[in-house]
Amino acid sequence: MRVPSWAGELARYAFLSLLVAWVLVPLAIATIYAFTPLEVYYSDAILPNSLTAEHLRTLWVLGAGEAFVRSVFVGVLTVFLSFLIGLPGGYALSRYVFPGRDAIKLGIIATRMFPIIVISVSLLKTFFALGLNDTLIGLALAHTAMALPFVVLITGSIFGGIPRDVEEAGLVFGLSSIGVFLRVTLPLAAPGLAAAGLFTFLLSWNEVFMASVLTLTNRTLPAFILVSAFATPTEPIRFAAAFLMILPALLFMLFARRYLVTMWAMAAR
């Protein structure tokens, strides 16, 4: 017997609604609880009828503001360093065919499989020796190591999407190689690179292990939350911390929508 098509459609929409709820409900609940007055939260009311920013303010007093700024600083520095170092490599991988190209590419992919935990112990000792422990620059250097393979591979694929002869046209009509890169390649790659940059920022923003072991007084936001904010017995303050962490991620989602599927499938590889 054939199932009528409207029943199939209904089942599909029901299933998708469940999936969407599964993702959105916890997100919404944590966000709402971050703004729920204490007396309401500790009552039996499931949802509050009024909201308050007092938990966010408390968090600020505890030092979340500085931690937020530090995280932004480390993230921006990581994006800057990893693009400065990785962009030329990505360009080379996309543009030149040379012996050893696949080997180098595989080598870069191979470094991606080692989590930051693996390098953190050694880096921590080295940074102690160099006086880079508890510094944001040290953390950005570590995050750059984590982000660099991604940046090389993703920029490689972005440049690979730009036709070679569009660049050659630039050469023929009077630009130098550097001129072509700056005035033809870069403008064409810009939207993709911007999305890749945002994603790199998020990699750093979300990283907690290295941040927690490397910094002590200069904690970034995730480290601050893991060590300090989580020690507070007042639960909604923890949710306010979660909200602070989530915010840039959601903004990123909004800006990078167009590149979402391709980029993340790439990022995962």
Partner: peptide, 20 residues
């Protein structure tokens, strides 16, 4: 897009969200 959101979230945030 909605199903992809958690990918942008940190594990710290995910832990806290499920704590809530």
């Amino acid at each position: 897009y909605i199903l992809a959101i958690p990918l942008a979230l940190s594990d710290v945030a995910a832990g806290l969200i499920w704590y809530a």
